[in-house]
Amino acid sequence: MSFVRHRLFWPAAILVALLASNIFFSSGFFSITVHDGHLYGSIIDILRRSAPLILVGIGMTLVIATGGIDLSVGSVMAISGALACLLIGDLDNQNSVTGVLLACAAGIALSLVLGIWNGALVASIGIQPIIATLILMVAGRGIAQLITDGQILNVTSAPYKVIGAGYTIALPVSVLIAAGMVAIAVVLTRRTALGLLIEAVGGSPTASRLAGIQARRLTIMVYVFSAICAGIAGLIYSSNVSSADSNAAGNLIELDAILAVVIGGTRLTGGRFSLAGTVLGAVLIETLNVTTVSIGIPVETTLLFKAIVVIVLCLVQSAAFRAKVLRRPSRVGASA
């Protein structure tokens, strides 16, 4: 029964159940066809739609692991997409690959700056993360609209379109980008000591300080990483719709991202984190969205479902709840 105890068992089981339930409503759900050397099918579609959430989610995972939270991700998405579209729109030739790459780089660079801003507020000024990132959350969409002058900026750039809607080696480019960032995050945290140090800071800030860990630099790093992830997600989103919509881009994605992180087994109080869990959580949320559509029940019910998931997960994580309701004694160290 040990696999049942695995922290990703239940999310994985729900994902499988959701996927399976689709079979009854659309028989071809699991079929994957090859068209022009590209893979098509509902599963591929779910992955493609998950890409921005996966990106934002892994950034959020590292932030939450340090005991923080980043509410500004949606705004950062809007800003990065807006800047990229603005620059592409100004190109003489919108199909210039170099121009598009530079525009994307500018979007990501601006995100990086915003990440430094968040990180500095939290680590240097010492403002609570939820409040510190609230500032950019509020102001960010205004900044994005400032960049686009309040318009929805449409671009007709084939190379830019590739990021969100293109295919390469048979898979959607956005999925590959997300996979690439996940890989980078895994390498960065598990192949170096970054993961260990982040978990130590989130697990016990005092003990970490006395072990010589400099939390300040780590904290700034995770907010920067989160902002970069959000920036890339913003590019994918805006590329997919070939425009920059400052209001729609990443609307409420911070809540979905937090949800994905929590579903993935990372505690909101910080400490141990699981990038794989977050990816699973993000895919689960998108599958839920797709499933409700295919079953034919109103899309809005997903909000109710999310509410229930948040409540259940929080109650299960709450020591007070376990003690009061489940009466499961917390594990006590064996006496020496």
Partner: peptide, 21 residues
């Protein structure tokens, strides 16, 4: 509260200071 990081493993706790350095 100021010594071990409870949720980390024995291994991780042991190498923590050396790694931080």
């Amino acid at each position: 509260t100021e010594g071990v990081v409870a949720e980390l493993s024995v291994r991780e706790n042991i190498i923590l200071a050396l790694q931080a350095a």
